[in-house]
Design a protein around this nucleic acid. Structure first.
Lengths: 352, 352
DNA sequence: GCGCATAGTGTATGCGCTTACAGGGAGCGC
DNA sequence: GCGCTCCCTGTAAGCGCATACACTATGCGC
């Protein structure tokens, strides 16, 4: 029951394989009656062109790849508890989903399909290589592929890095205005709400995004004439649980409780809200809390979360655009695009 | 700058192309020193094996495909408003995401990558064909591919249908216990909370899932000796907005207000909660509200939503398992798997 | 009637890899 | 020393399609 090929169809339809191929590639160059005959046979036989053969012959796959981090399989899904833990998943899950969706959509618009691959280890037979060999272009979420491998792959196909540092400067690069966004948000707290004791809850040390956001935070304090901390008040790893813990630490640290908790992402901000509620501290009356990302969750929590919204889906779309551009013009100068972010003012900062 | 091939590597490393190939496919069959030499050259040249050529020669791609509906591009993303509308997206977005994630993970475990393609039209050069030609197996979310095309593709590779009706009975089929789940939930409202006037807010007419859930609802009423409605009280299209509107209609319909709104999915249930809150109707004191799906959102809304949790991620994982099974044993009998669902009792039904 | 363009089709080659199969050399028992 | 493995490597034949090129049949102007 091996799948039928052009040869089978050609024989059955009494034409050459070239004609069969043309029916699919350039229907106009085949006489209408012939075309119909071929298509009829193809249907009858259940013929589906082999993407591999096509790709090999035409040197293009029509597929774009996306590589994002694997949020370390916490545990095998617990069917008992349903998806009740989903809200506790790291930011990246939601984040990566949005990007995937944006890419998928944009790719389709351009006639491409999307091949996704979470986290891949190195080695000759790694998924990277497997995936890289089957796509026309590749989008990589910061830090998911070793720089060394990237260098190799970049020889072969266009790559665009999303977020993270620009590790390799001859690649296209895409990021959001982390610094700017956090700056604006912080100024809002200072200028519009008159707050002066702000604490920054950062992400992991190796997160360039968190670092950029902290810089924006610092800059805002500096520009407002407030003392500028050299380090974040504390750190977490982007999860709600980390946010809860971070808030605990800050409250227990002694000294004056901050007037505002500026969190490196929304998940941690939501965690902080939980801690504050548990301790009977009112938000925003006693302490303001703000996040970063603009995940849907921030909209439904109480108080609703003031944050900086990232255009996550556009990130994916722009990545595709960059890839397509480069596929059309391989010698184009590498581009570095920064997408603007958006202030989303809800109630957790003190706005009505 | 055309990409290097086995030939380039072979020449440079003074071996035959067969040896280069073996270094990647069966490293053990190549002498260690030779292997290192080849790998060094490969690195130096930036060699990445062509997936197409590989696939063509070995007749397998190492890729599984997933096809889900395209939630009709509502509007181009409004960068101004950030992702604040995300919560209003149709259920399917979240749903498909979870399945994607489950499949991605399971696929990776089995050594496959995932090719995703939303909604595809027919025609010889459609995305279906493009995608179908490059995967080893294919999971299809109900109703996304015309049955006719499915028949053709099924000739060539394993297909598993997820949710929806079993259109083609020689395909593997996967669904959740919609009927059962809704039955249990409804009995809970009746037996444990003593409610007797229940209204069902259904999904689109063409949704087999919504239909199955309604059947469960009917059956529960019947078994409890209550009058059984022939039709749902009203319908929506699975979005929050639809849920709000549906609740409005029910409240404005005159006659006795129902004691419980049983919604075909969580998004609509959340919408209903919003309407009730706006009108000052207390949940669950005045009216109970329950959903179906178990999306994270239901956990954070107030009151938190009682629902039936689907094992969405497991759906994806099981789909992969079925595909892998069938790839191993093409002649296996078609299987139809029904995954159990889970009652998630929170506060919107009246539980403490 | 001839040359010539045009439309439609066939022939033949190559895309880059996998994988039987066929060697050649080394080690081993006898 | 011979034959026999075993290990390693090379040779060569595809895998299924796209496509340049060659070819035939037609229609046209002259």
């Amino acid at each position: 029951m091996s799948a039928p090929t052009v040869y089978d169809v050609a024989a059955r339809a009494q034409v050459s394989i070239a004609t069969v191929s043309r029916v699919y590639r350039n229907p106009d160059t085949v006489r209408a009656t012939t075309r119909e005959r071929v298509l009829a046979v193809a249907r009858e036989l259940g013929y589906v062109p082999s993407g591999n053969a096509r790709g090999l012959a035409s040197r293009t796959t029509g597929v774009l790849g996306l590589c994002f981090p694997d949020y370390a399989d916490p545990e095998v899904d617990n069917p008992g508890d349903g998806s009740d833990d989903a809200a506790d998943d790291p930011e990246h899950m939601l984040y990566a989903d949005e990007i995937t969706r944006g890419m998928e959509r944009a790719a389709r618009r351009h006639g491409y399909a999307l091949l996704i691959a979470a986290s891949l280890e190195g080695g000759p037979e790694s998924l990277v290589a497997k995936v890289a060999g089957r796509v026309d272009g590749f989008a990589v979420l910061a830090r998911t592929v070793p720089t060394e491998d990237l260098e190799i792959i970049a020889h072969r196909l266009p790559i665009v890095m999303i977020a993270g540092p620009r590790e390799i400067d001859h690649l296209d690069h895409l990021q959001v205005a982390n610094d700017e966004g956090e700056y604006e948000l912080t100024r809002h707290l200072i200028d519009d709400h008159g707050l002066t004791r702000l604490a920054f809850i950062s992400g992991g040390e190796d997160s360039p995004d968190a670092a950029a956001r902290f810089r924006g935070f610092q800059r805002a304090l500096g520009d407002a004439g407030l003392p500028v901390p050299a380090e974040p008040a504390t750190r977490g790893n982007f999860t709600q649980a980390d946010g809860r813990a971070a808030a605990e630490r800050l409250l227990d640290a002694g000294g004056a409780v901050p007037q505002a908790l500026v969190c490196a992402n929304d998940q941690m901000a939501v965690g902080a809200l939980q801690t504050l509620e548990r301790r009977g501290i009112r938000v925003p009356e006693d302490v303001a809390v703000v996040g970063f990302d603009g995940i849907p969750l921030g909209r439904v929590v109480r108080p609703s979360l003031t944050t900086v919204s990232q255009p996550m889906r556009r990130l994916g779309e722009t990545a595709v655009d960059l890839l397509v551009e480069r596929l059309r013009d391989p010698d184009r100068q590498p581009r570095s695009v920064m997408l603007p972010v958006n202030q989303t003012r809800r109630t957790s900062c003190g706005c009505p």
